[in-house]
Simulated assay, not measured.
Amino acid sequence: MTQLHALRQRGIEIAIDDFGTGYSSLSYLKSLPIDTLKIDKSFIRDIPDDRSDMAIAAAIVAMARQLRLKTLAEGVETVAQADFLKQVGCRLAQGYLFSRPIPSDEVASFIERKAEPETSSLLIDKG
Rank of each mutant, 00 (worst) to 15 (best):
I39D: 01
I39E: 01
P33D: 10
Q87I: 11
V88I: 10
A82M: 03
I44G: 01
Q81F: 04
A57Q: 03
A58L: 03
D105K: 10
A55L: 13
R68G: 01
S104V: 10
I44Q: 06
D83Q: 15
M63L: 15
I14Y: 13
D40L: 02
L29Y: 00
A6S: 15
S99V: 06
L32H: 04
R113W: 02
K70G: 09
S109V: 15
V61D: 00
T36Q: 09
A115C: 06
D40Y: 04
Q9F: 08
L67E: 06
G22T: 13
I44W: 00
P48T: 12
G89S: 10
M1S: 13
V88N: 01
D50G: 05
E116F: 01
V61Y: 00
D53R: 09
L85T: 01
G89M: 03
I39N: 03
I102L: 15
E116V: 08
K38C: 08
K126W: 02
D40T: 02
I47R: 00
D49G: 11
D40I: 04
S99G: 09
D83Y: 09
L69T: 02
G127C: 06
E116H: 12
R68E: 15
A108M: 13
I60F: 00
A57G: 05
V76S: 00
K30Q: 14
R113I: 07
A115W: 04
D105S: 14
S109Y: 10
D53M: 05
D35T: 07
T36D: 07
P101F: 09
L69I: 09
Q81L: 09
K30A: 15
D105Y: 11
Q81H: 09
V61M: 02
R51P: 04
D83A: 14
L85S: 05
D50T: 11
A57F: 01
I47W: 03
I102E: 13
I14G: 07
L92S: 09
A6V: 07
D17L: 06
D17C: 08
A82W: 03
A80T: 10
A82S: 14
E13V: 07
M54S: 08
R91Q: 11
A64T: 02
T21H: 09
S99A: 13
I124C: 06
A93F: 01
S31I: 06
K126G: 02
Q81I: 08
P117Y: 05
T71V: 02
S24Y: 09
D105I: 05
E112W: 09
S121M: 07
D83F: 08
D35P: 07
F110V: 04
D50A: 10
Q81R: 05
L67V: 00
Q3A: 13
F110M: 13
R65H: 12
A62C: 01
S109A: 15
D125E: 08
A59S: 15
R113N: 08
A15K: 04
G22V: 14
V107Y: 11
L72Q: 03
I44V: 10
D46C: 07
S104N: 15
P117L: 12
S24E: 12
E77H: 11
V61H: 01
T78Q: 05
L26S: 07
I34D: 04
E116L: 13
G20P: 06
D49E: 15
G75Y: 03
A80G: 12
G22A: 13
A115K: 12
A64G: 06
F84Y: 14
D40F: 04
D18Y: 14
S104H: 13
I56A: 08
E106I: 00
S121H: 14
